[in-house]
Design a protein around this nucleic acid. Sequence first.
DNA 1: CAGCTTTGACAACCATTGGTTGTCGGCGAG
DNA 2: CTCGCCGACAACCAATGGTTGTCAAAGCTG
Lengths: 317, 317
Amino acid sequence: MDLDPAQLRAFLAVTERRHFGRAAEELAITQQALSKRIARLEEVLGERLLDRDGRGARPTAAGERLIEPARAVLAACAAAVTAVRGAARPLRLDVWGHLFAPLRTVGAVAVEPGAVEIGHGRDLPSVLAALLRGEIDAGFGRHHALPDGRHRELAHRLVRLEPVDVVVGPDHPLAGATELRPCDLRTSQLLLPTAPARLEFLRRFAERFELTSSAVGSNLGAEHFLARLAATPTAVTLLPADLPLPDAPGLRGIPLVEPTPLYAWSLVWPKRAPHPGIPALLRAFTEAGRRRRWLEYHPERDWLPEAEAAQLGEAVR
Amino acid sequence: MDLDPAQLRAFLAVTERRHFGRAAEELAITQQALSKRIARLEEVLGERLLDRDGRGARPTAAGERLIEPARAVLAACAAAVTAVRGAARPLRLDVWGHLFAPLRTVGAVAVEPGAVEIGHGRDLPSVLAALLRGEIDAGFGRHHALPDGRHRELAHRLVRLEPVDVVVGPDHPLAGATELRPCDLRTSQLLLPTAPARLEFLRRFAERFELTSSAVGSNLGAEHFLARLAATPTAVTLLPADLPLPDAPGLRGIPLVEPTPLYAWSLVWPKRAPHPGIPALLRAFTEAGRRRRWLEYHPERDWLPEAEAAQLGEAVR
DNA sequence: CAGCTTTGACAACCATTGGTTGTCGGCGAG
DNA sequence: CTCGCCGACAACCAATGGTTGTCAAAGCTG
């Protein structure tokens, strides 16, 4: 009699939330898939486990009897994993995309104390290499395909679509505007903190909205970059809308509309032997994202480069 | 981190037997399938669990650490099933094909005391109906498709191929032979204990080897049937080779060769909500069958009607 | 009351999974 | 050397388990 832990997890999620849709969201599957899991579990056990009505679901008597034993099965599974791998160690998470301050988002996610160790940040290739070598367990940043195909060994989940503002210096001709369209920037120069090949989002923005771009130089730091921006009247750059601007004199962040560019943040982790804490981390991000509406996307008014390149389906995956 | 109980079961079987092939046999899957299960478990856990060499396999240190927790997972699963369904009750097994004495085979299988309740026997349609109604949990006999397609709701496993002798009375012209070929019986009359539609094996034998058949009449009992056989000089019938003949005067069982007909015994159980004891029962039958060579089959010298009708693949399934 | 929204399940589809058969390479024994 | 045993790889394919699209039922609101 083989009980499937995924089915038990689905069942427990519904008993906790009393609602198939929210349980499905917690598990990051569709409601229909969750419904099927429950149905399969009910078929294996030969008992109705949940009474459904138009407002949700609640456990039957048989379902009530299953709740604690189901938790025990999942705990036994976790203990078996721990026995093989040794004592549970914190999940090591590292981030990339320093200029867009990934730690803001990570910090907004409630995780169990001690369960996650957050690295100091690296660039994307370094994070991905560390993931593939098993030196870290997860990465957070804007994920895109790598030319050598190694990303295929990684799983990823889109967790946030963040609006991006344009940032200008005090002498920029459009500095007084309350909002701007990307096409208004055509006469401006997009300033890049480093080589464009390393900044896929900004490069795509420049291509899409026909800005010339100029790289400051090799990693001289955010302060230097922003000082350069402030001192260059024709220069603009992009930063997340809710990122506090540093104290560089006169810099303004102006909302972009028609369309608003969205920066896609994802979690990434190795497909092979994932750390046992990955599911909990994913759930924590999903929960935070639901509460803060991190995944809102309106195609008629937002610009999401992944959607243009038909990568969104994979990213949601 | 979802551990698959089937994978854990595979791992435990190998640790107990130290041999992939025998473990696979215990689980009634091929060695290759079992090898894949182990490989998948090793991939999920990210650790080598078994050291393989040309003579078998033994657990690694990580594998040793997994043994008891794996047992705990399976026990937790069993407890969860029990919690839903109530206290474990014995598995109710009933048999059919009374004349061929199915209880000999069932009695030869070691099962845990109290785990199985054996019924007194019924005919095939009755057993199958009871299975589908949930009145019993398993059946044992010669399984074949039913015209109304309900057998599709049943799973089955071939567990024994039993050689069949021809039985003749004292006045039969061939009574003195030490062995016979089925084609030697062409001038004989195959005596059937009841209507041929109810005796698929005997009917097929008669068709295949061109015997006329004659039914004694409606269920007057084995003694009456065998007395009629003894008193009819041209009559033969078929009985299992190792079934002791009753004390009917002068009846002889003569081995059939070129080919030897094989009677295929199977276990049958409902696909939906199978009793938790089914896997253990299957294992017990498999073990007994391995020890006694119950599944030996040599196409060049045996006759198995299911093989002719290309049903053997399904039967093994 | 009609219309709309919410909810879980059915249908169709398809990628993935997990089994089978056939075969292979490595190892050990005679 | 040959042969047999053993576990794994390759090819294949049925089964599984997810997705999207849709539907019916129930509940809510104006």
